[in-house]
Simulated scan of single mutants.
Amino acid sequence: MQYNPVEMIGQSIRSIPDWPKQGVTFRDITPVLQNPRTFRMLIDIFVARYMQQQLDLVAGVDARGFIIGSVIAYELNLGFIPIRKKGKLPFETVGEEYHLEYGQASVEIHVDAVKEGQRVLLIDDLIATGGTLLAANRLLNRLGANVVEAASIIDLPDLGGSTLIKETGLPVFSLYSF
C-alpha cells in the first residue's frame, strides 16, 4: 500500500460546520499537529520545498502560523519573525489593517524584525480571503524584505485570497485546497 503524505495530512484536517458562524466551515489543523506522524510529514514537506531557497527568515502569522513557521525556521536553521495581532508586541512596531471574512483587524511587526533585502518566507495555516497574508506581506515590504513566497497548509480558493495574493506578484504555495 502506497501512502501519500499530502493526502494523509488532508484527511487529518477536521471540518467544523457553522463555526464561527452559520454557513462557515472551519478547517481545523489541530488533529494534524496532535499526530506526530502527520505533524512531521507536514513540516518535512515544507522543509524540502524551501531548503534550497537561500532564505534568511521565516515570518509566521498569529497564531497558527507561529506553530508551523517556527518549526520550519528551526529545521532550516533560520530566524523567525512573529507577525502579531495589534497590541501584542512589546517593542516599537509598524502595523497594517486588513479585512477578514467577518470583520476588520490589524497585524504588527517589530520595526527591526527584518533588514533591507533579506529573503523571507511568509507562512500561515490557511488562505481564505487573503487579507492577513496581504497585510503581512505589505508590512515586510515596508521594512525592506524580499518576500519570496506566501505559504499555507490550506487554501480556500473559492474565497479568492490566493488569487489576490498572486495578483500582487507574490507566489503562493498551499499544500491542500478545500
Rank of each mutant, 00 (worst) to 15 (best):
Y3T: 15
N4K: 13
P5H: 12
V6A: 13
I9N: 11
S12V: 06
S15G: 02
P17H: 09
D18F: 11
W19C: 07
W19V: 00
G23E: 03
V24P: 03
R27I: 01
I29F: 04
V32K: 01
L33H: 09
L33F: 09
L33V: 05
Q34A: 11
Q34R: 13
P36E: 02
T38I: 04
L42T: 12
F46Y: 15
F46E: 09
A48I: 10
A48D: 15
R49L: 09
Q52G: 05
Q53C: 03
Q54T: 01
L55T: 02
D56I: 10
D56C: 10
A59K: 08
V61N: 03
D62G: 14
F66I: 11
S70E: 08
A73M: 07
A73F: 04
A73V: 03
A73I: 01
L76S: 05
L76C: 09
G79F: 12
F80L: 06
I83L: 12
R84N: 09
R84E: 05
R84S: 12
G87V: 09
G87W: 09
P90T: 08
F91K: 13
F91P: 05
T93N: 15
V94C: 11
G95V: 02
E97S: 14
Y98H: 07
E101L: 11
S106C: 12
S106E: 14
S106H: 10
V111F: 00
V111S: 03
D112W: 01
A113H: 07
V114F: 09
V114E: 14
K115I: 02
E116H: 08
G117P: 08
R119I: 10
V120Y: 09
L121P: 06
I123R: 02
D124I: 04
D124S: 04
D125S: 06
L126D: 06
I127L: 03
T129F: 02
T132M: 03
L134A: 14
A136F: 07
N137C: 04
R138T: 12
R138L: 07
R138S: 12
L143C: 15
A145V: 03
A145G: 12
V147M: 00
A150G: 06
A150E: 02
A150K: 01
S152Y: 00
I154N: 03
D155W: 05
L156P: 13
P157R: 05
L159P: 07
G160K: 06
G160L: 09
I165H: 00
L170G: 00
L170W: 00
P171K: 02
F173W: 13
S177P: 12
F178P: 14
